[in-house]
Write a protein that binds this DNA or RNA. Structure first.
Lengths: 132, 132
DNA sequence: TTGGCGTGTAAGAAAAAGCTGACACGTGAA
DNA sequence: TTCACGTGTCAGCTTTTTCTTACACGCCAA
C-alpha cells in the first residue's frame, strides 16, 4: 500500500513541501476531476499561467502529478497534466525514518546510537519532574 | 484510524507545511526517542535555542508535538516536548477534500458544480489528442 | 499578414520563512 | 555576589519562495 519504505527522506520532504501550499492543494483538487492542460486550468482556478506553470513543476518534481505534451487535432501542442494516485502514510515513525535518510548537510545524530546509556542519563537528569 | 475526516483544509495545510522542513523532521525524529526539554534538545541536534523554539512552536501549532512546562527537583522550570502519535493518510482524494475546505481568500471553484456539462465540454475540447 | 491560442522561460519585485545575537527573568550552588 | 543553566522574546539580517510582467516560439484560421 504505502510506498513509504522506498522513499528517501529527501523525496518525502519534497512531497510534503509540495503539498504544504494552498495553491498546490487546489491544483491537485482540480486535477482530481480529470486531466487538463495548463492554459485552461489556469483560467478555471483563476491563476496566472506562469505561476501555475511553476506550481505544476513543483508538483511534478515531487512525483505527485505527471504532464504529457500532446498534439490536438487542430495541430496545437498542449501539455496535459493528471494526478498520480499516490498514497503516503504520515506517522511519527515514518517521519523519523525519513529524517534519518536526509542528505542535507552534517548528517550528525549522536543521540541515536547510544541506547541504554542515553536513556539512563536522560532518566537521571529528569529527576522526578512533575507537571506544573 | 486516520482523523483526516475531522481535519479542515487549513489544519492539514499546517501539518504538511510543518513537516515539509528538514529541521522539523529531525526534531520529530529526535523526540521520537523520548521526551526532551528544549535546551538539551538544542544541544543534541546542534541548533540554536531560539531557532529550535520557533520550529517547536510551528510543530506544536500544527498539533504534532505538545510541550508541558514542568518543575525539576532542583527548582528549575523546564519545558518538555513530546510527539503526538498522529496518523494521517495522504492521497489525492484527501488533498482534494481538504482543498475544498480551505479558508484562504476567494473560495471560488466554478468547475466543480457543473458535472455532466463540464465533462462534455472537456471531452469535446480535447478532440482526440494523442501522446507526442 | 494578422490575430488567437497554445507552449516555455527569464528578470525583478514582493512577501514569507529562516536564522542570529542580544536582551530579560528566575533558581540553585559555589 | 557571582556563576551556570533553565525559560522566553524581540530586532534585524539573509535566504528562499512566491508572483507579475514581459518576451519568444509554433500552428491554424480569417
Amino acid at each position: 500500500m504505502s510506498a513509504v519504505e522506498t522513499l528517501t527522506g529527501d523525496d518525502l520532504l519534497k512531497v510534503l513541501a509540495a503539498l504544504g501550499n494552498p495553491h498546490r492543494m487546489r491544483i491537485v483538487e482540480a486535477l482530481c476531476e480529470g486531466r487538463n492542460y495548463v492554459s485552461r486550468l489556469a483560467r478555471e482556478i483563476g491563476m496566472s499561467r506562469p505561476l501555475l506553470h511553476m506550481h505544476l513543476q513543483r508538483l511534478e518534481s515531487a512525483g505527485l502529478v505527471v504532464g504529457t505534451l500532446e498534439l490536438s487535432d487542430s495541430g496545437k501542442a498542449m501539455k496535459f497534466f493528471e494526478v498520480v494516485p499516490f498514497a503516503y502514510e504520515l506517522t511519527p515513525e515514518v517521519i523519523a525514518h525519513a529524517a534519518g535518510t536526509l542528505s542535507g548537510a552534517d548528517e550528525a545524530d549522536p543521540a541515536a546510537p547510544a541506547k541504554e546509556a542515553d536513556q539512563a542519563a536522560r532518566a537521571k537528569e529528569e529527576e522526578g519532574a512533575r507537571t506544573q
